[in-house]
């Protein structure tokens, strides 16, 4: 019963990944036979200023939005963890933006962030705050994208919620008796217990953002204004699907593989450290 999954992984993930690894050494346009060019693609790509810029932009997006998303998911999950009225509806409402199909969601935000007519800026002006020009402004385009990413945190929210629910209530009761206040409890008990999960989530989110941001960027900014939101996926998309230069696209992918490799390594270390996958209690993802 494990067979279809294994086969699927091999054909749809392992094999394509392997091919793209090798394609980096060929010149290939999908039409003529591939031609061995050695390291030429790497030289071309790694001297391309746009490529370097795209990595910078990608990293900037990930570094800012991932902690915000993971912490946001944690805080929100903590808020609706314990019983109360309409609890399941609160949870549903928080999850709802995640259900919206990505292009529809991007379209909604494109309207919300419209610099002149968008409801968000109307609101900001109404309460006397400066209304930035968001996606139309080279400086504010990235914050705009990060803002868009902050609402769809349903998956992280659920995982945090499950992890919080998994904590035995006795711990909290014991801590209360010892006189710990809420903050102390959070800081010294909840947080350490949840740390591996938050870290796992952060890594997964980093990879996810790399990818998800592409849809947003393609529909909302197309890399602009003036390359302010030009990211690695966009570079790879242009190389692969616009210029049909699969070789250079593969060479660019190597960076991604290196990042992924690092992430997987960290993951493995974390997993070993906390014994994830062996014990039941902390296993959530």
């Amino acid at each position: 019963m494990l067979l279809p999954y294994t086969l699927g992984l091999i054909v749809l993930v392992a094999f394509p990944a392997f091919i793209s690894f090798g394609l980096a050494f060929f010149q290939y346009d999908g039409l003529t036979t591939p031609r061995w060019v050695g390291l030429l693609n790497f030289v071309l790509v790694y001297t391309d200023e746009l490529f370097l810029l795209s990595i910078q932009n990608s990293l900037a997006l990930v570094i800012v939005s991932v902690p915000l998303r993971v912490l946001g998911a944690f805080v929100v999950a903590r808020l609706v963890q314990r019983n109360g009225r309409f609890l399941s509806w609160f949870r549903a409402a928080i999850f709802l933006p995640t259900i919206i199909p990505a292009p529809a969601y991007v379209m909604a935000w494109l309207w919300l962030l419209n610099p002149l007519f968008g409801p968000l800026n109307l609101l900001l002006r109404a309460i006397g705050l400066p209304a930035p020009n968001w996606l139309a402004d080279p400086v504010w385009a990235k914050p705009g994208l990060i803002l868009i990413a902050l609402w769809q945190i349903g998956e992280g929210f659920l995982i945090n919620l499950a992890a919080l629910q998994d904590m035995p209530p006795e711990i909290e009761n014991a801590a209360r008796i010892d006189g710990a206040n809420s903050f102390q409890f959070l800081r010294y008990i909840t947080f350490p217990i949840l740390l591996p999960i938050l870290l796992l989530l952060a890594f997964r989110d980093a990879i996810l953002i790399f990818q998800e941001s592409f849809t947003t960027i393609l529909l909302a900014t197309n890399g602009g204004p003036y390359y302010a939101t030009y990211t690695l996926p966009l570079f790879i998309y242009e190389q692969g699907f616009d210029l049909l230069s699969f070789g250079t696209a593969s060479a660019a992918l190597w960076v991604l593989y290196m990042i992924t490799g690092l992430v997987v390594l960290c993951l493995y270390l974390i997993a070993r450290q906390w014994g994830i996958g062996t014990t039941d209690e902390t296993f959530v993802i």
């Binding site: 394509p16 990944a17 793209s20 998309y237």
Partner: peptide, 15 residues
Amino acid sequence: LALLMIPGIALWFTR
């Protein structure tokens, strides 16, 4: 878990 970390972009054009 490790495969979960392979970004979809890496597979776009080889797929």
